[in-house]
Design a protein around this nucleic acid. Structure first.
Lengths: 244, 244
DNA sequence: ATTGACTCCTGCGATAATGCAAGTTTCTTT
DNA sequence: AAAGAAACTTGCATTATCGCAGGAGTCAAT
């Protein structure tokens, strides 16, 4: 937990993460101010960025990396409620309240920027577009979460796992050359997304492989036929969610 | 769909719904402006306020009533993704996008106020606290939806139905005198909340009745022992969600 | 009061999903 | 390269949930 916070070499205005809210929604002078105030930090794979129950001191911005947002339930069983990549925001859930209701864990080495509450207050006041952008972000996340809620409630196991694979493709993308998913996760993590058990994930991935929908290359997964996977869930009215 | 929009007799500043965002977050002069711009309208029980796929023209504020927000899936099966009462906001999901990804249906006769996009733009610019308040609203909704997501993914049938009953109590409250839930819904609607079938709801409510946790008075449900219901789901770390 | 429509209740067989356990592969460390 | 640990796979028995179908109760209109 003794994480070495430090200034990044890069100035916010030179940051390569163009989807960062700071660059997108803040006026020029404020990009400079924020650059001064922010803390930059690196989290190793598997490391917690924050835990459920931690006090909320501000907002995290993912500069580069992959993060899972988890909610822990019965007997420590985890549910992944969101996946986040470059430019996404973390920690907003607890924002304004006292403690985080969810935890965030780096799925690979991840660089994040942190803005404390005091700075944020100033940013909100002086950059209305930032507040507006954040509101839109929440609205979109809410919409997506509601669709996922229905998926988990109504889909069969097979459908949930197909849906998870497509979600992973959408968020992290696939390698242009060989079609492998740009993310590596354990069977248990896939189960934590789909809301099932690791054994079931194995079974269904084997089925998908036999149906030539995917290939398993060790831990890497290749989506051979994304349209075929989508057909599995097409009757569930998830089109809007995936059509972007 | 030919709903008779009309001005309400009440001025916004005299409105009894004190939790309305307009009264809470807008400066005095703007309460007047909004009062001029808004449309007021009544929806009968069962009537759609908007449907999935409708164009988004603005935001709805519930003045008085009860509304279910539904997402329709396989074979028209519905999932209730949110329940809303007095002072709550509707239609925000699609806000900024083109069409509503969910529908909203009045569960009883419901009065709503409507603000169109053009007016909202002005409100956002001139009432930063309104934008901020809306952002917080989304943030809170998102948090709640995430917890519900985990509940639907991890809980047993019995637990989901106990959770649904407690959610209903929290949102709509209970009659002080006899403890009946301040809302009447069909078995199917309860199933649409819990993510199961009407038969299972019946079975489990019968179990709860035998265990003296509830009583069924026709369509009305009396929560005899809310603590007992909570015990059923206590191991799922939902405390924060219900402790308000 | 009688009818009809609707919702609710309940038993039962079919199906889906789970958990365990043993075997296999893969990865890591030395 | 070998050993050990961890993750993955697979079969099987158990359990949970579903869906149908028939009966019972409720409500409203005549």
């Amino acid at each position: 937990m003794t994480n070495s916070y430090k200034k990044s070499n890069t100035h916010c205005s030179d940051c390569s993460t163009k989807t960062c809210f700071v660059q997108q929604f803040c006026v020029t002078t404020w990009v400079g101010i924020i650059n001064q105030s922010r803390n930059h930090s690196l989290y190793k794979k598997g490391q917690h960025i924050f835990r459920e129950g931690d006090r909320v001191f501000g907002l995290y911005f993912i500069q580069r990396g992959k993060v899972k947002v988890v909610s822990t339930g019965l007997n420590g069983r985890e549910q992944i409620v969101r996946l986040a990549a470059d430019g996404h925001i973390l920690g907003h859930r607890g924002f304004g309240s006292e403690t985080y209701p969810v935890g965030a864990v780096a799925m690979e080495d991840t660089q994040v920027c942190f803005l404390d509450n005091a700075t944020l207050e100033d940013v909100f006041i002086n950059n209305p577009k930032f507040t507006y952008g954040l509101m839109m972000f929440y609205s979109t996340e809410l919409r997506k979460t509601e669709v996922r809620l229905r998926c988990l409630a109504q889909m069969t196991l097979r459908e949930k796992i197909a849906e998870s694979l497509l979600t992973l493709k959408k968020i992290f993308g696939v390698n242009e050359e060989d079609g492998t998913l740009n993310v590596t996760l354990s069977r248990q993590e896939m189960a934590d997304i789909a809301g099932t058990t690791a054994e079931q994930v194995t079974r269904e991935l084997t089925n998908f492989e036999n149906e030539l929908l995917i290939t398993k290359q060790g831990k890497k997964i290749v989506l051979l036929n994304a349209d075929g996977l989508f057909n599995i869930i097409a009757t569930h009215n998830v089109n809007k969610y995936f059509a972007v």
